[in-house]
């Protein structure tokens, strides 16, 4: 560690590869992230709840301001885990596996919330809680993959042993992300096609678009804040495990 910091100017990447340094930096960043996230979520939800009722959907349109950010997060979190999985497999970054393990339960919560809020929105607007069509089914598969990943990352006592298989599962599962994104274009589905990320610009008035973007930003920041806390906890958990083994060895010797 010392030779890295004195001999050559270390890159940001290698600074963050040192868990102790990561704990220091993330500790400073954490309160700011939570603060910004809470402000943005509160502003987004407030603007969303006070937005005018839609001429067709009435007030159910307000479900959009949480449903769409949850859907966006469910895909973004898997993408973050995929980048981390590359970190495990290609660079053997010591924190990459910590990142995957910490992100999985948070991703699962946001994915199930996307499914639940979508279902509650679908009942009055589509007349059904659920259909097995392309969009809904592919998101449900994503939720199952999160659950599988949670099981895999917690199945073995020694964290290093599951790191590689977890990283492979994450990368294989990543093929589902473009399938979810384009499912509304490729197949017939009850779900509407994209209305924000479009070639011809968002098909939505500012009264809806502004709260939606603020809310999406807020929940994204909230994910990164929670992810940081969960990563810090995972580092401590691994230290506790290592020290417990050390203590056991000392007691024996």
């Amino acid at each position: 560690m010392t030779d890295v910091s004195t001999s050559a100017k270390p890159s940001r990447f290698s600074i963050l590869a040192n868990p102790t340094r990561f704990l220091e930096l993330s500790g400073k960043l954490q309160p700011w992230l939570y603060g910004a996230a809470l402000i943005a979520v509160a502003a987004g939800v407030f603007l969303g709840l006070t937005a005018p009722a839609d001429y067709q959907q009435g007030m159910t349109v307000t479900i959009m301001f949480i449903h769409v950010p949850f859907a966006w997060l469910s895909m973004m979190i898997w993408t973050v885990m995929s980048l981390s999985a590359l970190g495990t497999l290609v660079w053997r970054h010591p924190l990459a596996d910590v990142s995957v393990k910490a992100a999985a339960p948070i991703g699962a919560v946001f994915t199930v919330l996307c499914l639940i809020t979508g279902s509650i929105w679908g009942r009055p607007m589509w007349g059904t809680w659920w259909v097995w069509d392309a969009r809904l089914t592919s998101v449900f598969v994503l939720f199952l993959m999160y659950l599988g990943l949670i099981a895999l990352t917690r199945a073995l006592e020694e964290p290093g042993k599951s790191a590689k298989s977890a990283a492979i599962l994450v990368l294989v599962g990543f093929v589902n992300i473009p399938i979810i994104k384009f499912s509304v274009d490729w197949w017939n589905t009850l779900h509407q096609p994209a209305s924000v990320m479009r070639m011809d610009g968002p098909a939505m008035p500012a009264a809806y678009l502004t709260p939606l973007l603020v809310s999406a930003l807020g929940f994204t920041l909230l994910f990164f804040a929670l992810h940081l806390t969960a990563m810090r906890t995972e580092i401590l958990r691994r230290r506790v495990a290592a020290l417990s083994r050390l203590a056991a060895r000392r007691a024996e010797g």
Binding site: V45, M59, T60, T62, I63, I66, I116, T117
Partner: peptide, 12 residues
């Protein structure tokens, strides 16, 4: 519709 919106926000 209130019950739908309230339950979506409440559960979340």
């Amino acid at each position: 519709y209130f019950a739908f919106v309230a339950s979506a926000y409440g559960i979340s």
